[in-house]
Amino acid sequence: MPKSILIVDDSVTMLMSVKTNLEMNKFKVETADDGVKALAKLTSGFKPDLIITDINMPNMGGIELIKKIRTLPGFRFTPILTLTTESQQGKRDEGKAAGATGWLVKPVGGTDLLKIIKQVLPGA
């Protein structure tokens, strides 16, 4: 059973790069280009094993998205990683407080990303 991952980012390039990389490595991947669309996917029955989100996005940013996801039933323990160019401690603390599992600063190399995913998704 392949593990499913939701990627949220407003950059087409990011979505494409991460999606293709993960699909090549046998993950099932869904994408959304802002927090609102991501939330809509999650509330309409899609339950990914992992969520990777950008922080700065139009409509709804990553921090707000993580806070909202944590209030959804069944998503308290779903790992959520951020993938962003933001690297300051303040933002990291905000992410941690909102309920993020880990903080990744762009760019993350293809094999490195896979290694990190294996860490948060044992058995993947």
């Binding site: 390039t13 990389n21 160019t85 760019p107 293809g110």
Partner: peptide, 18 residues
């Protein structure tokens, strides 16, 4: 596939530059 993953990771710089 590792090589391809690296190439895919490399394209992220476009987003950073943007």
């Amino acid at each position: 596939s590792q090589d391809i993953s690296e190439i895919l990771g490399g394209i992220q710089y476009q987003d950073i530059v943007r």
